[in-house]
Each structure stands twice: as structure tokens, then as C-alpha cells.
């Protein structure tokens, strides 16, 4: 158990903060600690979590991507236009088109970074401008409101009325989000590809000398983020029941902040799906709680910002230094014992 704690400090610290926050909020408002509210938080966070696990893979492999959120907007638009060209389409076609377009856009980033050796932040800021500029140019900023029925109708996997009259709903975005998390977790910690991505992010030169195909690593990490961005884009269109070209503009930095809050390290080699999910949830729970407490939405954005500022600054000063000393000492002793 101690080893588990000391090797997952960020996750446990986040969990602890989250528990404290939940306790505090449940005293602050009686509507917070209900099952239906928990599902609300999940429904609201689903799209961001899908983005975040995609971004996580890129961060672990040592890159950064600014373009994924506007890429998702491009995917939404292209997918909806393609579906109407196909005469309506269905969920399977929707996912395939969104996924492929997303992977394609991600591969453009991989090409720029690997083939043209442009560092990832410069390359993705450029593609951010290209994707968004072209999208707004071709769409003239016009939104699409008449989505196919299957896409705009809510898909509910499980619903139940609670004793207090509130509804619990398990909706499609949440199910898709859970599948994306499992897939990403599986790839990163159970397959050789995952090991290679971690290794490449940890020590690129060491990985190269070991004969790891660097080009493939770029395509896989940015392709995966593209896939996740495509799926997230489709889910966001489904959730919002419309496609607005600049709806996701600016989302990239919020997701980046939440992912890093979850322990992923800029520079690579470190990060976990659990931490990443907790990072996004912490932000959502804070917003949700403040909302329920009747705090002005303008104020809670500021409060969330302050919390992220403090958390990120503190976590750079290393969470594990905040662990009780006794625990650290005994962990050290245990590992030294032959």
C-alpha cells in the first residue's frame, strides 16, 4: 500500500483534495452529494476527459499539442457534412468518419514534427491557426443546427428516478468516455507500444539508441490524440445538438491545464490515465459545487483559475514533499531492506 501511495503521489494527492472538496461542498449545499449530481458532473466532463486522455498520450511521449480542440471542430463540421452527403448516416459511420478525419489531422502534426523537425509547440500553434482559419473561412462562421436525428437525440443507457425525484442518467458521451479511458489505459500500460511511448518521452536519445522507431512514435501519439479529438468532437456535437465552428476554440488550454494537474509532465515520460481523469474531474467538481452554492458563474471561473494556479504551482514544488515525513522514511527503509 505504501509503495502504491509513493509511486502514485499525484493521484493520491488529487484524490485527497477531491475528497476534502466534496466533504466541504456537501456541507455547503445539500444538493451536491447526490447520485444524480455525480452523474451530472460526469456528463459535463465527458468530452473534456476524452480530449485529456488523448493529450495525455502526446504529453507522455514528450510532445505538446495546441491544435486538438480546433481539430475537433474541423472533425465535427466535416463529419456532419459527410454524413448528410451519405444521406443521413448512422452512429457507426459517424464514429468511423470522425475517427479517420481526427487521425488524419493528427498525422499532419506528426509529419511536421518528425519529417520537418519543427518542435511540437511551434508546429501545433501553426496548425491551430491553419485549422481554425480554414474552418472559419470555408464555413464563414455559420453553425449547423439541423443535425441528423440519430446524432442529436439523446442516447441514454440507463436511467432511474431517485427517491428525491431527481433523475440519474448514464448517457452515450459518458459510456464513450469510459471506453476511451480503458482503451488509452490498455495501450499505455499493457502493450509494447505504450512502453515505447513512455520510453521515448522519458529519454528520446536512449529510445533511439535502442532501435525504437521514432517516426512511428510520433504518428501513434499524435494519431491517437487525433482519434480522441475526433471522437470528442462527435460527442460534443451530440451533447450540444449543434455544430458551432468556434465552440471548442480555447478549450485546448483548459484541457492542458487539467491534464497537467493530473500529473502528466511537460517534457514526457510521466502521467497516468487515472490522474488525468481526476484532474479534469477536480475542475468540474469545483465548478459544479460553486454553481450549486449559488456563486456567480463569473466568480467561479476566477476561483477555478486561482485553484489551478495554486495547485500547479504547488505540484511543481512536488506533491511528494508534502507527504508526511514518517511515510516517506518508512517507504525508503522498506525498499532498502534486502
Amino acid at each position: 500500500m505504501r509503495r502504491l501511495v509513493s509511486s502514485h503521489t499525484t493521484e493520491f494527492a488529487l484524490l485527497a483534495v477531491m475528497v476534502l472538496l466534496c466533504i466541504g461542498l456537501s456541507f455547503g449545499t445539500d444538493r451536491f452529494l447526490t447520485v444524480s449530481n455525480a452523474f451530472d458532473v460526469l456528463n459535463v466532463s465527458a468530452v473534456n476527459i476524452i480530449f485529456a486522455v488523448g493529450l495525455l498520450v502526446v504529453l507522455i511521449s514528450g510532445g505538446i499539442d495546441i491544435s486538438f480542440a480546433v481539430a475537433a471542430s474541423v472533425v465535427q463540421y466535416v463529419t456532419v457534412l459527410a454524413l448528410s452527403a451519405l444521406g443521413g448516416g448512422n452512429w457507426a459511420e459517424g464514429f468511423i468518419i470522425a475517427g479517420l478525419v481526427g487521425i488524419g489531422l493528427g498525422s499532419i502534426n506528426a509529419f511536421l514534427i518528425y519529417r520537418l523537425q519543427i518542435i511540437s509547440i511551434v508546429a501545433t500553434i501553426s496548425t491551430f491557426n491553419i485549422f481554425f482559419g480554414l474552418l472559419m473561412f470555408f464555413t464563414k462562421g455559420v453553425s449547423i443546427y439541423n443535425l441528423p436525428d440519430w446524432l442529436s437525440n439523446r442516447v441514454v443507457f440507463y436511467e432511474r428516478e431517485m427517491a428525491d425525484g431527481s433523475w440519474v442518467e448514464l448517457t452515450l458521451p459518458v459510456v464513450v468516455m469510459i471506453l476511451c479511458c480503458i482503451a488509452t489505459w490498455f495501450m499505455m500500460s499493457r502493450t509494447t507500444i505504450g512502453r515505447k511511448l513512455y520510453a521515448f518521452g522519458d529519454n528520446p536519445e536512449g529510445a533511439r539508441r535502442f532501435g525504437i522507431n521514432i517516426g512511428a512514435m510520433h504518428v501513434i501519439s499524435f494519431g491517437w490524440l487525433g482519434l480522441m479529438a475526433g471522437i470528442a468532437g462527435l460527442m460534443q456535437a451530440h451533447y450540444a445538438q449543434e455544430v458551432v465552428p468556434n465552440a471548442l476554440y480555447g478549450r485546448e488550454l483548459d484541457v492542458l491545464a487539467a491534464t497537467v494537474l493530473g500529473g502528466a509532465r511537460l517534457g514526457g515520460g510521466k502521467g497516468s490515465v487515472l490522474g488525468c481523469v481526476l484532474g479534469v474531474l477536480l475542475v468540474s467538481i469545483t465548478q459544479n459545487g460553486l454553481n450549486l452554492m449559488g456563486v456567480s458563474p463569473f466568480a467561479f471561473k476566477m476561483i477555478v483559475g486561482a485553484i489551478i494556479l495554486v495547485a500547479i504551482t504547488l505540484s511543481s514544488a512536488r506533491f511528494d514533499r508534502l507527504l508526511p515525513n514518517a511515510m516517506k522514511a518508512s517507504a525508503r527503509k522498506r525498499s532498502q531492506r534486502p
Binding site: 513512455y198 520510453a199 522519458d202 529519454n203 536512449g206 539508441r209 535502442f210 510521466k270
Partner: peptide
Amino acid sequence: IWQDLALFGEM
């Protein structure tokens, strides 16, 4: 065994 060892610190 390279001088910088080429190991992976986080693993």
C-alpha cells in the same frame, strides 16, 4: 553501455 547510460528515469 553508454556514458549517459541511456536508461529511463521514470520507469
